[in-house]
């Protein structure tokens, strides 16, 4: 373990009882925070103190605490998952903060992600987008022998790069337009890179994009904030490739038109 220190922080945390009630910032002191703690462990410590003082703890989503489930995430000092590149909030450790820092902690903000409570938001819009076509239609039992499908290594690698998305929503939170393009394009490109994904490639692009629009996400202005905030460092070229698939799909593979 590296040298362990303790630091004191001031937290300004967004508290909101539910979607219908307006929220506000509350200020809490986080004292004796070990620099070995993760950000969420720091919140645990603050919450324990709040609870013992009869104040309801800060609600926040979290689960695996090893950066893979995608449950956690809030905006720390204006940055989704905090300032460390390629890192989820649960993997952000307190040694990256300085004694005396003030941290402003807000939920992911987007019209498509309504607040449930405090820092907890409803990201079910992502599920709806996947339901619109983020899959390969193969029924259990009907799959051919695995080695009969050849996938060039490069495609497998590109597909894996895109498939690494954990669906945390940081891209939406970081985008000035609350756009979900990085999330949607990651799924479209994961499947679009693979031979298995080809039969539904264009249909998938059309349906997922239309669903994304319907759910109230913004448009892409190519700010690239999504890429910069993505804890899995998914690249913005996915968005360009998705745009290409969509245009080709609409102009040349439109099932309704032909």
């Amino acid at each position: 373990m590296s040298e362990s220190n303790t630091i004191h922080l001031t937290l300004r945390v967004w508290r909101q009882p539910n979607a219908a009630t307006p929220g506000r910032f509350e200020t809490y002191e986080a004292t004796n925070i070990s620099t070995e703690m993760s950000f969420l462990e720091m919140l645990d410590v603050v919450n324990d103190q709040l609870a013992l003082n009869g104040i309801e703890p800060i609600a926040f989503d979290h689960d695996c605490r090893e950066g893979i489930c995608g449950a956690c995430g809030c905006v720390v000092n204006g940055q989704a998952h905090g300032h460390l590149k390629g890192t989820t909030l649960c993997q952000l450790h307190m040694r990256h903060f300085r004694d005396g820092d003030t941290l402003v902690i807000e939920p992911f903000r987007a019209k498509a992600f309504p607040i449930i409570k405090d820092l907890v938001v409803d990201r079910s819009a992502f599920d709806q987008i996947i339901q619109a076509g983020g899959y390969i239609s193969v029924k259990t039992g009907s799959a051919p022998e695995a080695s009969s499908i050849l996938v060039p290594k490069k495609n497998a690698d590109l597909a894996m790069d895109a498939a690494a998305c954990i669906g945390c929503g940081a891209c939406v939170a970081a985008c000035p337009n609350s756009s979900a393009m990085l999330f949607v394009s990651a799924k479209i490109n994961h499947l679009g890179q693979l031979p298995q994904g080809q039969p539904e490639r264009y249909r998938r692009a059309i349906h997922m994009i239309e669903k994304m629009d319907e759910l109230g996400f913004g448009n892409c202005s190519n700010h690239l904030e999504c890429e910069a905030a993505c804890p899995k460092e998914i690249q913005f070229v996915n968005i360009g490739r998705m745009n290409r698939d969509y245009i080709i799909a609409k102009l040349f593979h439109n099932e309704e038109a032909f």
Binding site: Y135, I136, V138, T140, G141, S142, A143, P144, E145, A146, S147, I149, L150, V151, P152, K153, A156, A159, M160, A163, H190, L191, Q193, L194, Q196, G197
Partner: peptide
């Protein structure tokens, strides 16, 4: 077989095999 058909991006060799 099932997972490959679903598009699970398993590691591949240069020849395209698993």
């Amino acid at each position: 077989d099932q997972c490959v058909a679903q598009g699970v991006p398993f590691a591949r060799e240069y020849g395209g095999l698993l």
